[in-house]
Simulated assay, not measured.
Amino acid sequence: MTESKDRAFVNGLARGLAVMSAFKPDRNRMSLGELSKETGLPKTTVARLIHTLVKLGYVYADPDSGRFQLHPRVLTLGYPVMASMDKRHVALPMMQELAEYSRGTVSLGIRDGLSMILIERSRDSTVRALPLDIGSRIPIHTTSMGRAYFAAAGEFEQKDILAQIETFDPKGFKKIEKSLREGEREYREKGYCTAIGSWENDVNAVGVAVELSNDALAAFNCGGPSTRIAEENLDDLGRRLAELARHFQTADWVGQLPPRPYKGVSPP
């Protein structure tokens, strides 16, 4: 965690949020030592912050193991944000239809740092393995969703993303920037981005950016294992996902679905 030199910046608040952000799905129970290592903060500082978060009810302390985990109360912090993005519910029938057509999954995500956080997802009924669920994170630079988001972001936000990448991965920065710029060109030419084995070797996907009801930029993706979604099918899925995004974007969403049923685009 880096601390700002801005005099109005509250370091204590930043540190507390850093501790809460340290918990991950695969590290949902952590000791003081693990939290100290993850945040880069002294163990004594982490102990005080955890004590405060426990008192406020946002962290639960297991008396038997001495480890800590986030309390469900933290969900109350995110609810107002999710409620302000309620237009996403309009997309669910269309997402499900495309998921069944593609025999894969369709997700909607928003940016957090150098990741995209999934806020909605649908999957084909034949997908047996549990795909990424709501709240899961995927990287921006290797995924179709992230590349589409970057392509649609304004110049200021693009510079912020690239600056963060250069800070965290200076050696790989040039390669990552090139990949994002190539995705930007693809998005400009086709209206969607592709990711062919760049996130996971056996996963192919397409991505399209869209705005939510609170004007927040987001992005859809449609993807799955290459055994289900072959590279030669990506252009068809990209056009269908772009059409889904257009329906979603123009929907009179107050309790209504788009003016006509979404049936994707006609095959080329």
Rank of each mutant, 00 (worst) to 15 (best):
T2N: 11
T2G: 12
K5R: 15
K5Y: 10
F9D: 12
G12E: 13
G12Q: 15
A14D: 15
V19H: 05
V19K: 05
D26I: 04
S31F: 12
L32A: 11
E34A: 03
L35T: 09
E38R: 13
E38L: 14
T39Y: 00
G40S: 08
V46I: 14
V46K: 07
V54W: 08
Y60G: 08
A61F: 06
A61V: 03
D62K: 04
P63M: 05
R67V: 13
Q69I: 09
L70N: 02
P72Q: 05
R73D: 14
V74R: 02
L77V: 07
P80S: 10
D86S: 11
V90N: 11
L92N: 13
P93L: 04
P93Q: 06
M95V: 08
M95G: 10
Q96R: 15
E97K: 15
E97R: 15
L98W: 11
A99S: 09
E100G: 09
S102F: 00
R103Y: 14
G104Q: 07
T105Y: 00
V106D: 08
S107C: 12
L108G: 03
L114M: 11
L114H: 11
S115V: 11
I117W: 01
I117Y: 07
I119Q: 04
E120M: 06
S125F: 01
R128F: 12
L132E: 09
D133H: 13
R137E: 09
H141W: 01
H141Y: 03
T143S: 07
M145P: 01
G146R: 03
Y149R: 14
A152W: 01
A153C: 00
F156D: 10
K159M: 10
I161P: 03
A163G: 13
A163H: 14
I165E: 12
E166I: 00
E166P: 07
F168L: 15
D169Q: 13
G172S: 08
F173G: 03
K174G: 07
I176K: 09
E182C: 04
K190Q: 06
Y192H: 08
C193G: 09
T194N: 08
S198A: 07
W199H: 15
N201L: 15
N201A: 15
N204R: 06
A205D: 01
V210D: 00
V210A: 04
E211K: 14
E211N: 09
E211D: 09
E211S: 01
L212S: 13
S213N: 05
S213W: 00
S213D: 02
N214Y: 09
A216C: 04
A218Q: 04
A219H: 05
F220Y: 05
P225N: 15
P225A: 14
S226C: 07
S226T: 12
I229M: 06
I229N: 06
I229C: 07
A230D: 12
E231S: 01
E232K: 10
N233R: 12
D235T: 03
L237Q: 03
G238I: 00
A242C: 04
L244Q: 08
A245M: 02
R246G: 00
F248V: 06
A251E: 05
Q256A: 15
L257I: 13
R260D: 11
R260G: 06
P268I: 05
P268C: 11
